[in-house]
Amino acid sequence: MRLPAGTSILTTVAVGALLAGCSASVDFGKSEPKMSAEKLATLVSEKLASTTGQPKPNISCPGDVVGKVGNTTRCKLTANDGSTLGVTVTVTSVDGDQINFDFEADATASPAS
């Protein structure tokens, strides 16, 4: 049985219940550093692609992430067929302008609406 491409990436990500770490340098002033939602989405997409061996998935994140250990946000992976998979991103450490984070994909996907 051949799965559609969208279902294939979701299955690949979900089966691994992926937990991966990333880091990025960000700009900050006097307050805590922040990473833009767009940059976060790009980094998660690139890491998922390299980990799963699949093309970069479409990831969206709801807002900027403040570089404070323990902060979390929920991003969403949307496959070509419209099905989605939640991805939780958690800040694990901050070193100057470097925000380090882990992310974990949900175990099951939501079907297209």
Rank of each mutant, 00 (worst) to 15 (best):
Met1Val: 09
Arg2His: 10
Arg2Gly: 01
Leu3Lys: 12
Leu3Ile: 10
Leu3Val: 11
Gly6Phe: 11
Gly6Tyr: 08
Ser8His: 04
Ile9Arg: 09
Ile9Tyr: 06
Thr11Asp: 08
Gly16Phe: 04
Gly21Cys: 00
Gly21Lys: 02
Cys22Thr: 02
Ser23Gly: 07
Ser23Asn: 06
Ala24Tyr: 02
Ser25Thr: 14
Val26Asp: 05
Lys30Arg: 11
Glu32Tyr: 12
Glu32Met: 08
Lys34Ala: 13
Ala37Tyr: 04
Ala37Thr: 01
Glu38Thr: 09
Lys39Ile: 06
Lys39Thr: 13
Leu40Thr: 07
Ala41Pro: 11
Ala41Glu: 10
Val44Gln: 07
Ser45Ala: 15
Ser45Thr: 07
Glu46Asn: 14
Lys47Pro: 00
Lys47Leu: 03
Leu48Trp: 03
Ala49Gln: 05
Ala49Met: 09
Ala49Tyr: 07
Ser50Leu: 06
Ser50His: 04
Ser50Val: 04
Thr51Lys: 11
Thr52Val: 09
Thr52Trp: 10
Gly53Glu: 08
Pro55Cys: 05
Pro55Glu: 07
Pro55Thr: 10
Lys56Arg: 15
Pro57Val: 01
Asn58Gly: 00
Ile59Tyr: 10
Ile59Phe: 13
Ile59Pro: 05
Ser60Tyr: 03
Asp64Tyr: 06
Val65Trp: 00
Val66Cys: 00
Gly67Asn: 03
Gly70Tyr: 01
Thr72Val: 13
Thr73Cys: 05
Thr73Leu: 11
Arg74Glu: 15
Arg74Asp: 14
Arg74Trp: 00
Cys75Ser: 07
Leu77Gly: 03
Leu77Val: 12
Thr78Val: 15
Thr78Phe: 10
Ala79His: 10
Ala79Glu: 08
Ala79Gly: 11
Asn80Gly: 11
Asp81His: 03
Gly82Pro: 02
Ser83Lys: 09
Ser83Gly: 13
Thr84Ala: 14
Gly86Phe: 09
Gly86Trp: 10
Thr88Ala: 12
Thr88Lys: 13
Thr88Phe: 04
Val89Ser: 05
Thr90Leu: 07
Val91Tyr: 00
Thr92Leu: 06
Thr92Ala: 10
Val94Thr: 08
Gly96Gln: 03
Gly96Glu: 03
Gly96Phe: 00
Gly96Cys: 00
Gly96Arg: 05
Gly96Thr: 01
Gln98Met: 06
Ile99Thr: 06
Phe101Pro: 02
Asp102Thr: 13
Phe103Glu: 01
Ala105Ser: 15
Ala105Arg: 04
Asp106Leu: 10
Ala107Asp: 09
Ser110Cys: 02
Pro111Phe: 04
Ala112Thr: 14
Ser113Glu: 14
